[in-house]
Write a protein that binds this DNA or RNA. Sequence first.
DNA 1: GACTTCATTGCACGATTGTGCACGTTTATA
DNA 2: TATAAACGTGCACAATCGTGCAATGAAGTC
Lengths: 261, 261
Amino acid sequence: MSADIRRIDGTLPGERQGIVLDRLQRFGKVIAAELAVEFGVSEDSIRRDLRELAAAGLCKRVYGGALLATAATTLEERRAWQPERKRALAKVAASLVLPGQILIIDAGSTNLAIAAALPERQQLTVVTNAPDVAAALMGRPGFEVLMLGGRIDHKIGGAVGAQTVRDVQGLRADLCFPGACAIDADSGLWTMDAEEVVLKRAMVEASGETVIVATNDKLLTAATHHTASIAAVTHLVVERDADVKIVARFRSKGVGVHMAS
Amino acid sequence: MSADIRRIDGTLPGERQGIVLDRLQRFGKVIAAELAVEFGVSEDSIRRDLRELAAAGLCKRVYGGALLATAATTLEERRAWQPERKRALAKVAASLVLPGQILIIDAGSTNLAIAAALPERQQLTVVTNAPDVAAALMGRPGFEVLMLGGRIDHKIGGAVGAQTVRDVQGLRADLCFPGACAIDADSGLWTMDAEEVVLKRAMVEASGETVIVATNDKLLTAATHHTASIAAVTHLVVERDADVKIVARFRSKGVGVHMAS
DNA sequence: GACTTCATTGCACGATTGTGCACGTTTATA
DNA sequence: TATAAACGTGCACAATCGTGCAATGAAGTC
């Protein structure tokens, strides 16, 4: 490989994928041919990178390059996004629940999958701000469902706001499943929406233990609002192919990490 | 030769479909010729895109472009199992709603059908104690949804109890759809469940007008708990083959009776 | 030092996909 | 019914993709 000043030299393959991911998150898309020139490698290598990232669910492969995976806009789209991965995660998360416990389940497509995976006839009490979670559990035997009131945010898919927070503060639960937008071993939990943060905080504070279920992308991205410290996280459920180094860092912080199968 | 014009915009083929979808969801429709000049591709390519999106059920193909496949149509299709009479009743009940109004919708399968039949993009505010009603409206454009909190009663399919009643009492609505177990031209509204009565009363009292949707059987049966006087009932929606004499008695009491087609 | 082992890469080649154009058909509208 | 716009399909061509294979180089082993 001849040295070219314009090229970024000395980049390891793993490092290259990280840069590609960063660029994806900044611009929403990358073009294979452009990346090839930039890194000074053949398009084949770039394609291999993109294929790997896509397999890990971090980007969406398209003809000519790749698009950011998390750009799924609608609730419907997010719900339809990788259902088999979500089911695997949800199954593990549901196994952390003990009979008779009181759970707080936040809104979100992953949490809806968790609710669906909860075992029946175990006298579980479920508190939720998500109508679809409540509707999913309604009618199944052995569930006591408490609905949190408030204005429904369409983008979030559940109730948020002062009334909802007040209702949560009047409760005490064993386990809490707040949806996280991003999680980091050092800084802890992060959320995108300002109003959501307050509710999630209240949920975590009202619960003895907190379970975070994180798809791979949540282990790498950043979000704007700090929600909770890493000390508040009891369990972390990640995908089977999650980065080993990242997982190790969570373990060193005392978080119980569970890998989906 | 002219195949080189492809990327004057830098839009990847897969990306283009995403943009079209986004535009669909924002404006409700797209025009093939417009998209063609915008992306700098031939109309043929745009037509192919729209065809694919339509095949995936994400839009509806029409002459000249495409329309958004609304949640209403898919929901209606999904609820095709619904008894035809309930759909007919719901359609009439939904037609009583005016743009910008605040509605209270009680739990129940008929009310769920009414919620599904409500017109989109009319700035309606819907207050409900039923998670399935909230979930059905969630994501549809032009709906503000307020969820009433409380313990979910599985048999009823919605929240009941002191907290729910308190939440309702803090509201004021235009129209109210309390599910009725029985209705009589003299005595008024009747309900089966003791706890439900309190909530229904609060709903009726919080609303300017009350709409009762009654299948034929509800015009004949009796129930245990008195809920409201007939004076509180503004509109009554009945089936096409409802007893003429009974209907006449409601009309003589000043109730606006509407027959489903 | 010579050898194996393994990951990474570039290249060749056939397969696939996206594209515009031509041509005949369908559809909306006057 | 007449007419123009929009449509679907078949086709040629180029860009892109996936895979097999050999070359390179680093790391470990004898």
